[in-house]
């Protein structure tokens, strides 16, 4: 069983989630996104989900702990331990 700490920041109004998810087998970005959208799709702002039911990467950045982008060419994310999905905000 592989574990991944998933940070979902800026996709759900007023709720920044840090959730630990567990997976059998390898976790691709696509599989992870489908899982997240299955769990939180009702709360995620519609513009952040694309027509294929995945994250809309026009807005949503997915990256690892060092800020490196994670994309669909990553076939197994379990080594990362943590992953972020964010819609950046330059406010303040």
């Amino acid at each position: 069983m592989a574990k991944l700490l998933v940070h979902i920041y800026g996709l759900i109004p007023g709720d920044f989630k840090d959730v630990e998810m567990e997976f059998e087998g390898s976790i691709s970005l696509e599989r992870l996104e489908l899982e997240i959208i299955d769990l939180y799709g009702q709360e995620i702002q519609p513009q952040y989900i694309n027509g294929e039911g995945l994250m809309n990467h026009k807005y949503v950045i997915s990256g690892d702990k060092l800020g490196k982008r994670v994309d669909y060419s990553n076939h197994d994310l379990s080594m990362l331990k943590e992953i972020w999905f964010i819609v950046p905000l330059a406010g303040g």
Binding site: G10, G14, F16, W84, P88, L89, A90, G91, G92
Partner: peptide
């Protein structure tokens, strides 16, 4: 709702990615 919950400091949480 995001700014209400976390204030402008919420942007700091996004810094590792943004």
């Amino acid at each position: 709702n995001t700014l209400k919950a976390y204030g402008t400091g919420v942007a700091m949480a996004m810094a590792p990615q943004s």
